[in-house]
Every structure is written in structure tokens, then in C-alpha cells.
């Protein structure tokens, strides 16, 4: 049998075009990312100083530092994780280890996915309705943390579930075969193996939460509060919201431009550091649990 040579040529050209296009697109995306980073670093780095990181904002937020916003963001991230991590991990354990396969489990999974897709402003409104008004927390770190925690919940649940799913079943069986109960097995065998991946999920959630503006808009964020919060019932400033107000509704938007870039720089730096930390932590625990 003879095959037409033209067909071989056509295949070659088709491949070259297809790969060329997808290669160009992926390089373009990387370039775009670097462009954004470069832009923020270039505009922001000049503003960064010890004073900028540790001083209160002054002169209608055109001078001084962003210390309360940094601290506020740290409080909110910490508070939201304090809520989302235990709740999310427990939900993930239930879904993967206890829930019986069937319509109910599929429904839970579908709802978790849907929750992840809810726009963050909706979380903000919901948080205001439930935590601020209904439960009477007022605009406070508590209300803001809980709202951000809800936003982070699906991420923690899904990564926990996926991490547990990847634990080989013979580990569980080996524990049961020694007379181990399900709970003991999960605590002593399954969770330690899954931990590196669960932690990665947690830190990715931190990255997500630290940059959110909409959920804190009505629940905690203070427009201008040049002092540190006194308690979890206090309002606080936060980096993304600070950036938003001095870019859109400050008294002197032009004058506070450098501060805005500096804030953006700090925010991006925090998210970047958190992501690098995630990678390191994953490697560290991954090595500890590695199978040969």
C-alpha cells in the first residue's frame, strides 16, 4: 500500500502551527505576569522604607506609613484561618473518610464547588447580614475574619479531600488489621501522610484571603484608623481596602499615588512570600513522608 506523501507534510505543518500558537500564548502569559510584577516593583520600591512599614498614615493618607493596614491584614488572615482551617479540614475528613458514596456525597461536593464560585462581594453582603447585623458583632475583626473564613472554606475542604484521597488505602487497612479504629487510624496514620498537601491548601487559601477586598468592605475595614485595633470587636485597616480607598476616594488621590504603589508592592510581596512558603513547606513535609 502507498500513502500520499502530501498527508505527512500536512500533518507536520499542522503540528508546527498548533504548537507554535500554544507556545506563544504560554510565553505571553509569563511575560504579562512579569510585566505586572515589574510595574509594581518599579513604582512601589521607592516608597518602601522602614518608616513606611512601621508608621501610621498621616496627612490625609498622603504621607506616613501603612503599619495599621499591614497589621490589620495579618489579623484578618490569622482570624479567618483560625476558623476555616479546623472547620474545612473536619468537613474534608467527613467527605472523604466517612461519607458513603452516593447522591448525598455528590450533592455535598457540588455545593462545595458552588461555594467556591460565589463572587466575593456576595460573601461580603452575607457576612454583613449574618455576622455584623444578625449576630450583632458589628463591623469588627471577628465579623471580617468569619466572612473571609467562609470564602476560604471551599479551598480548604477541597484540598483536604484531595489530600486524603491520595493516601493509599493499604495504610488504612494495615491500621484496621492491627485493631485500630477508624478515628485512631485517621489521626495517627492518614492525616500525617496527607498533612503536606493539606498545608499547601491552607497557605494557598491564605494567599487568596489576604488579597480580598469585597468581603471586608462591609464587615470590618476602616477607611482611616491610624491606630492598632484594641480587640477583635474593633475595626481595622487592611492592605487591599487601603489600596482601594487611596486610589478611588481619598481626599488627594494624586498625592497619595506613591503610597498606593507602595501598598500594592507590600501586598504582592506578602502573597508571593506566602506562596513560596507553601512550596517550601510542601517539600519539607513531603520529604518526611516520602515513600521509596
Amino acid at each position: 500500500m502507498t500513502f500520499p506523501e502530501s498527508n505527512d507534510r500536512r500533518k507536520k505543518i499542522g503540528q508546527a502551527v498548533m504548537f507554535g500558537v500554544s507556545k506563544g500564548i504560554s510565553y505571553g502569559i509569563v511575560a504579562l505576569l512579569f510585566l505586572i510584577l515589574f510595574f509594581i516593583i518599579k513604582q512601589g520600591i521607592g516608597v518602601i522604607s522602614w518608616e513606611f512599614l512601621t508608621a501610621m498614615p498621616t496627612d490625609g493618607m498622603t504621607k506616613g506609613g501603612i503599619y495599621p493596614a499591614i497589621i490589620g491584614t495579618l489579623y484578618l488572615v490569622g482570624g479567618s484561618m483560625l476558623f476555616a482551617f479546623p472547620v474545612g479540614v473536619m468537613a474534608g475528613i467527613y467527605v472523604n473518610e466517612y461519607a458513603v458514596s452516593g447522591p448525598m456525597k455528590r450533592f455535598i461536593n457540588m455545593m462545595t464547588n458552588n461555594l467556591a464560585g460565589v463572587p466575593s462581594i456576595i460573601f461580603g453582603l452575607f457576612g454583613m447580614a449574618l455576622f455584623v447585623n444578625q449576630m450583632g458583632f458589628g463591623a469588627s475583626i471577628l465579623a471580617g475574619s468569619l466572612t473571609l473564613g467562609l470564602l476560604a472554606l471551599p479551598i480548604v475542604i477541597r484540598t483536604t479531600e484531595e489530600s486524603l484521597k491520595s493516601v493509599d488505602d493499604t495504610f488504612r487497612q494495615a491500621s484496621y488489621a492491627l485493631g485500630g479504629s477508624k478515628l485512631y487510624t485517621i489521626r495517627k496514620v492518614v492525616l500525617p501522610i496527607a498533612l503536606p498537601n493539606i498545608l499547601t491548601g491552607l497557605i494557598l487559601a491564605v494567599g487568596r484571603v489576604s488579597g480580598e477586598t469585597a468581603p471586608i468592605l462591609f464587615t470590618v475595614a476602616a477607611y482611616f484608623l491610624p491606630r492598632l485595633p484594641n480587640s477583635i470587636m474593633d475595626q481595622c485597616m487592611a492592605l487591599p481596602y487601603h489600596l482601594y480607598v487611596i486610589s478611588t476616594s481619598g481626599t488627594q488621590i494624586e498625592a497619595s499615588r506613591p503610597i498606593a504603589y507602595g501598598t500594592a508592592f507590600v501586598l504582592v510581596a506578602i502573597v508571593l512570600i506566602v506562596n513560596i512558603l507553601a512550596a517550601l513547606l510542601r517539600n519539607y513535609f513531603g520529604k518526611k513522608v516520602k515513600m521509596n
Binding site: T170, Q173, V289
Partner: peptide, 17 residues
């Protein structure tokens, strides 16, 4: 108690972490 009396070894070595 039954499982304490009947030990098991699996196909792939699976020591705990």
C-alpha cells in the same frame, strides 16, 4: 479482638509515616 488475633502483611510494604 479478632483483628488482633489475625495479623496481616500487604503486597506493597506500607510502614506508617
Amino acid at each position: 479482638a479478632l483483628r488482633r488475633n489475625v495479623g496481616m502483611v500487604f503486597q506493597k510494604p506500607n510502614p506508617f509515616p
